Simulated assay, not measured.
Amino acid sequence: MKLLQRQIFLELLKLFGLTVSCLLGLILVGRMLQLRSLFLSQNIGILNILQLFFFLTPFFLLLITPIATMLSVFLTFLRMSTDNELVALKANGVSLYRMLPAPVLFCSLCTLFAFFISFWGLAWGMDMFKTKLYYFAKTHSKFALQPGVFNKEFPGITFYAHQVDNEKGELKFAFVRDDSIKGTSVVVVAPEAEVVSKPQQAEIHVVFHNGRIFRQSGDELNILKFGTYSIKLDLGKLLTGFNFVEQKAKDMPFFRLRDIRKDHGLMPHEDDRFFRKVDTEFYKRLTLPLGCFILGMFAIPIASVFRGLKQQYGLLLAMGLFMVYYTMFSIGVSMGESGTIPPEYGMWAPDILFVFVALFGMRYANLERTPTVVHWLLHLRLPGRKEEAGA
């Protein structure tokens, strides 16, 4: 039995490592172009990109650990079932329950790992990600324009230049429109301008020479001539979607969420929607790690019941079942944040449902009985096979 448990545990670990690596790699590659597009110019080296991805890893690991746990257990027991190893073990008096110590230990370790990420790793990763992202924006980005193209990278500001020399920072026939002030529109036009970068201050200055300023406020229009006029731009505004001042529930440590739930006075300027997000995020940090153990146990009877199924079809089946879980989970998040239902109901519902299915399925799998619904699914193509045999 010790040898059996060791072999099952090692196979689970190998599949878990392979699954996490593949899923994490696919996610991070998909984010690469999105991350690079946050900057005006492509001056961020691959090592810097990898460093940013490393800090995003805890966020993604919290999402993929449950499915990686489920796939590892499912594929392991599906292989054992397909190779008739389960039949041989049961023929020698080893019941399904006696095979459980290894997967239980494996699922417990995955759950503890997910709890560690949920309680501490997620907030640390997001803090470091924002810090490094802002640092790279200051030290690596520069203002790069394309000639004859309107640039709207900065919120509320539109740039245009007929001729551009990005190496020297020189602009010819430059135009800028500033709508960042509510109710007021400012247009600056000049035959010449230059771009001065100040990375250490996270600022860029666009200096116009011998131009005009058109300022419109309501029905009033003012026109001013100038010799030199400078516009200051904050590089931090390049980071679309990253507000370094606003506190978001998804970026907070777990224990900070707990304290805010107990005392709303810690965030006196926030509204009810913010506190609903805090409640939802709090239960999300609890239910996702527990989902590792529940989905892992759920996968054992499913793999045993669908014995003989090819691994590629088994993989699709497992992914489909996880999508059911994740869809319920996403609906719970949306309804909890909107206030449609209490967050705890929506967040705990998928785990509770899958616990009952796992217990029910484990009993059937140990008795080597197939539920009627599964029996019907396995024989959907039976009439077609009979027709082929008759032909």
Rank of each mutant, 00 (worst) to 15 (best):
Q5S: 14
F9I: 05
F16M: 13
L26C: 11
L28Y: 04
R36G: 09
L40N: 13
Q42H: 12
Q51N: 12
F54Q: 06
F60G: 05
A68K: 01
F74H: 04
F74S: 07
S81Q: 03
K90F: 05
A91R: 01
Y97P: 04
M99T: 10
M99H: 02
P101F: 04
P101L: 09
P103K: 00
T111N: 08
F113P: 03
F113S: 14
F119A: 11
G125I: 10
D127W: 04
M128Y: 10
Y134H: 07
F136H: 07
F136T: 11
G148V: 07
F150P: 07
V164W: 01
V164L: 04
D165E: 13
N166H: 01
E167M: 06
L171E: 09
L171H: 02
F173N: 13
F173Q: 15
A174Q: 06
D179L: 13
I181V: 13
S185W: 00
V188F: 12
E192A: 10
N210K: 14
I213K: 08
R215L: 12
S217G: 05
K225D: 14
F226P: 04
L235E: 03
G236W: 02
L239F: 05
A249C: 08
L257C: 10
L266W: 01
E270D: 05
I302A: 12
R307D: 09
A318H: 08
A318R: 05
M323Y: 08
I331N: 04
M347L: 15
V355G: 02
E368G: 07
T370C: 10
T372E: 13
L377R: 07
L377A: 14
H379K: 14
H379W: 01
L380P: 02
